[in-house]
Design a protein around this nucleic acid. Structure first.
Lengths: 233, 233
DNA sequence: ATTTAAATTCATCGCTTGTTGAATTGTCAA
DNA sequence: TTGACAATTCAACAAGCGATGAATTTAAAT
């Protein structure tokens, strides 16, 4: 009985998978998604490649095959959604500016353009956006990653929004403007982090993942702060 | 030549050190201080006991001897300065309330009592306070540690301040109040984190470690936000 | 039909991890 | 002076780490 060489019914454990197998080639995406979630929750050092491989349903060696060493994987995860987010915020700002023209755009509208796309992302069907936002919180608050990754991928956007705010607040001093931006960034980050702490603090009255509630209040809160510090004194 | 048993001039490498040796028994403190700094910078998983022992100038085994397993050490570090901080903020609030009596205390004064002790801490000669604040930022933004440690050590304080704010803003809804507190907490955390990002964003105009500048603007920013969201609508 | 390249698993490398037990030296009270 | 105890170092443990080279299977190109 000669061994039947072609197409054994049991799929091989090793080697390239048949393209007919579902869950075929998007293994790279599965890795990125799992990495996003785990890095956001446990930080860079809190995630081992074996844990990650397990979560993604993939062999450890495959991570290196697709994304190189661990640091490079982290970079890739962080970069993936940055561009999309920046575009959405820029579009929102331009729309608001167009709508206000030829008059001056209000501080609220600028803040809204900056923050609202994040609510949309966090509430989207793609659960990954929620994880990415939590990752953003981790990176933004980290003295190791923050100055590197945030500056690299988000500084251009910051410039555009600070320009818009400067125009809307003509009396403002630049240092005031940057500090206020910093407060906004902090408030936003803690919302991203989605830690569940406000649930405990408020004894269930507020929910960490009620992003609608979070942003509806955050926008007027931040706008008022800007006006107070950067407005007519 | 019989070995001289008593008091060899070279101090033994092993065994209990002579009490005459300077840097004697505050080895426990040295461990806590180094742990504070390293945990704040790299997070729980980013610090190995050997790195820590090296930074503290101490043998690895000594960490376990004094503080038990790693998690327990982390708890101890976090708890150490929490009580002190809480007391200072409470005193500041009571002083402000007494000064305002019998009238109503202003939102600004309450926020000031909450935030200013942190500026004092971060600028104090004891460098450890700066590290502790950075650790606070890490814990506050962590979904793993935040709900556990923050709630355990800071929820009582939150209650007192929210009560004061509720009284100063009689029209306020409780959910609004907690969300605004959350924004304040986020702005504060990012300032703690001291990442150096604002330096890059502002091209050197603002400095991350200029805490005076940070809090002088943060207090009116936050107060205005509270008033906008929780004040008379 | 052959060859080349892509995608996957497996086994293993050299290190590092947190933790612990034993040995050593000093202090202090009895 | 002796004995209990405190403080320290050292060596080692089993487990886990990131990384990689070899083997294997399939797909695609020629």
């Amino acid at each position: 009985m000669p061994a039947q060489k072609t197409v054994p019914k049991t799929p091989a454990k090793v080697g390239r998978p048949r393209s007919s197998d579902k869950d075929k080639s998007e293994r790279g995406d599965r890795i990125l998604n799992a990495a996003e979630e785990l890095f956001a929750l446990h930080g860079y050092d809190g995630v081992t490649l074996r844990t990650l491989a397990n979560a993604a349903g993939v062999d450890v060696a495959l991570i290196n095959y697709y994304f190189g060493p661990k640091q490079q994987l982290f970079d890739t995860v962080f970069k993936r959604r940055a561009q999309i987010l920046n575009e959405q915020r820029l579009t929102a700002l331009q729309d608001a500016q167009q709508e206000a023209a030829p008059g001056v755009i209000s501080v609220e509208k600028i803040i809204e353009a900056f923050l609202r796309p994040l609510e949309v992302a966090q509430e989207s069907d793609d659960e990954g956006w929620k994880n990415y936002c939590a990752l953003l919180a981790y990176v933004n608050n980290s003295a190791v990653w923050g100055p590197v990754l945030m500056s690299k991928h988000y500084n251009d956007l910051v410039d555009v929004f600070v320009d818009a705010l400067r125009e809307a607040l003509p009396q403002s001093d630049d240092a005031d403007l940057y500090w206020c931006y910093h407060y906004m960034s902090g408030a936003m980050s803690l919302t991203f982090a989605n830690t569940g702490r406000i649930d405990k603090m408020s004894r269930g009255l507020c929910r960490s993942d009620d992003f609608r509630a979070a942003y509806d209040r955050m926008i007027p809160f931040v706008a008022a702060g800007f006006r107070q510090v950067c407005g007519e004194h």
